[in-house]
């Protein structure tokens, strides 16, 4: 934090100019972000069904109580937590391996990095459709290769597994890119010194690489957890939320766009927002995660 000090006239003028220059951006942000958020909060406190405009009324926290008392909400939370924890764990391990490969590659570095990024470059909905076709009997090659007798997208467990697979395939490259940036921070001299002292490759990785990479790992995991918690497109395309595979985002969408219940749908959205905010808070306060760059200055 810069220390407070007397401002010269020029500094004051510059500060004023800065405010004026920022104002348009702030106004746009207020219009497209702050207003919808506040409006959603306001809607979540009302009984508001598009089909019954005459029955709208202020109901306080009733919508939240309805959501929290519903087994469908908790089923969706459970699904989302399972998808988040399993997919991010796999992504972290795989992403680290891929990052190490990218870091150590001597020739064809550009080609390797480009190839790794391909899944991340494909539009999620398109990828989800190809997963769906691949897992559907008659059209699907995966069903043929694995000699499956049933449609894996018709039961709860296998559907969740396929959703997680699609998520992992899609976002591991993102994870490995963030981790690669962290790997670049580990000084080569330190590794050399450890090697001279007789440390094994595993010891060097656990004792030197991981601690030095901690800020990068935390940021990568934080980004992915917040992202994974809002999983929507893969589920929307693969199962549409059938067989109890709804995530919280799918549940909110169904309330808003199928049920046309803006009150309850907004309450679901606000709850998702609160959970995501909580995840961010836990990571920053609890594990000391920091935005990239901010960590080095402390």
């Amino acid at each position: 934090m810069p220390r407070r000090q007397e401002l010269t006239g020029r500094a004051r003028a510059e500060r004023r100019l800065a405010l004026i220059l920022c104002a348009p951006a702030v106004l746009v942000m207020a219009a497209v972000t702050a207003y919808p958020i506040v409006y959603a909060l306001w809607l979540s406190l009302q009984r508001y069904d598009l089909r019954f405009p005459n029955r709208s009324a202020f109901v306080g926290l009733e919508n939240y109580l309805t959501v929290v008392a519903s087994s469908r909400w908790w089923q969706a939370v459970a699904n989302t937590v399972i998808i988040t924890v399993v997919s991010v764990t796999i992504e972290l391990v795989l992403g680290m391996l891929v990052a190490l490969v990218m870091h150590r590659t001597i020739f064809g570095r550009g080609a390797v990095r480009t190839n790794v990024l391909v899944p991340y470059g494909i539009i999620t909905v398109v990828a989800a459709f190809s997963w769906r076709f691949a897992w559907t009997p008659v059209t699907g090659y995966l069903v043929r290769w694995l000699h499956l007798s049933t449609d894996p997208l018709t039961s709860h467990g296998t559907s969740l597994a396929i959703i997680i697979l699609a998520e992992v395939w899609k976002t591991t490259p993102f994870m490995s890119l963030l981790l690669l940036a962290g790997l670049a921070l580990v000084p080569e001299e330190l590794m050399e010194a450890a090697r001279v002292d007789g440390a094994s490759a595993w010891q060097r990785f656990v004792r030197i690489t991981l601690p030095l990479m901690k800020p990068a790992i935390l940021v990568a995991v934080l980004f992915r957890v917040m992202d994974a918690f809002r999983v929507f497109d893969d589920i929307f395309v693969l199962t549409g939320g059938a067989n109890q595979t709804q995530s919280v985002s799918i549940l909110g969408y169904d309330q808003l766009f199928v049920g046309l219940n803006l009150g309850i749908g907004s309450a679901v959205s606000v709850l998702i927002f609160l959970i995501v905010a909580l995840i961010g808070l836990v990571f920053i306060r609890g594990f000391g995660a920091a935005a990239p760059g901010a960590g080095t200055r402390r």
Partner: peptide, 17 residues
Amino acid sequence: DLRTSIGNALNSQGLVP
């Protein structure tokens, strides 16, 4: 089961599946 859930649906109460 149906009586309860249809009752909720008619009053636009509860969460749609």
